[in-house]
Simulated scan of single mutants.
Amino acid sequence: MHTKIFGQPFSESKLRWHASDVTRIQVLIEWGGIYLDKDVVVVQKLDRFRNYEMTVDYEVYDLFLGTQTLIAGREALFLRLWLQQYRRYEADCWMCNAAVRPTKEIINRWPELVHRTTPGAFGASIEELCPMLYLRYEPDWRHKYYAIHLLMRANSLTDINYCLDRRPDMMTAVIDEHYVRQLNTTFGEIARDLLDFDV
């Protein structure tokens, strides 16, 4: 794992995430392809986006780049510019180099460098995703999204307080196959589909 970028040490408290952000950019520059966070579920084929040099999703509300699903051609110019902006690495800022600055300094300046999906089509918007996944059932999820970011690490939610403030039963739940059998939310249906069993 990288510990520095352009001679600047990564933040100790954010090392794992910031190093991962840089690694995904470097791998896509070298090889191109599709990057998915490990908690992203692909809902529809992504092949149509391979026709663009770079495809990104962005948050519905703040319109910053979503980094959990990236589709790129090898040596995409956007990726090279994105990596170069790490020369001004902001160690104390969680998403500045990964989402905020590439949006403000690159995409907003040269929008032709990326194909932007319909906002949230790769599941980048937490404000939309949390209630859709964990608080209600969205019958059209298979058609509305190409990929969905589940916001999970292992068998718990990463943004649990934000996502579940109205679902105290899920705050302490271990999300496993027994729990998802009875869950009447979009996430419950997605999990049952992935685990290949019916209620």
Rank of each mutant, 00 (worst) to 15 (best):
M1R: 09
T3H: 10
K4C: 07
K4G: 00
I5L: 02
I5E: 04
Q8C: 07
P9D: 15
F10Q: 08
L15P: 01
H18L: 00
I25K: 01
V27F: 07
V27E: 12
L28G: 09
L28T: 10
W31P: 15
G33A: 03
G33I: 11
Y35V: 01
Y35H: 14
D37E: 15
D37M: 08
D37N: 15
V43K: 02
L46V: 08
F49S: 03
F49K: 05
F49N: 05
R50I: 06
N51S: 11
Y52S: 13
E53P: 10
D57W: 09
D57E: 08
D57N: 12
Y58C: 00
E59F: 14
V60A: 03
D62W: 07
F64V: 03
F64H: 14
Q68T: 14
L70A: 02
L70F: 09
I71V: 05
I71F: 11
G73D: 13
R74Q: 14
R80C: 00
R80L: 03
L81G: 00
L81F: 14
L83S: 06
L83N: 07
Q84N: 07
Q85N: 10
Q85D: 10
R87D: 04
R88V: 00
Y89C: 06
A91L: 02
A91T: 08
D92C: 06
C93A: 10
M95E: 10
N97C: 09
R101K: 14
P102F: 14
E105W: 03
E105T: 02
N108P: 11
N108C: 03
E112M: 08
L113Q: 05
L113W: 05
L113N: 06
V114N: 06
T117R: 01
A121W: 05
F122L: 09
A124R: 02
I126P: 02
E128P: 00
E128W: 12
C130T: 05
P131F: 07
L133S: 00
L133G: 02
L133K: 01
Y137T: 06
Y137G: 08
E138M: 04
E138C: 06
P139T: 07
W141T: 09
H143F: 13
H143K: 12
K144S: 05
Y145V: 04
A147M: 07
H149E: 11
H149G: 06
M152Q: 08
R153F: 06
A154Y: 15
A154N: 15
N155G: 11
N155E: 08
S156K: 14
S156H: 14
L157P: 03
D159T: 10
I160R: 12
Y162D: 02
Y162A: 00
M171Y: 10
M171I: 13
M171S: 04
M171L: 15
V174M: 08
I175L: 12
D176Y: 08
E177G: 00
E177Y: 05
H178S: 14
R181D: 02
R181E: 12
R181K: 15
R181P: 00
Q182G: 12
Q182E: 10
T185F: 01
T186W: 03
F187H: 05
E189F: 07
I190A: 03
L194G: 07
L195W: 15
L195S: 04
F197G: 05
D198K: 13
D198M: 08
V199H: 11
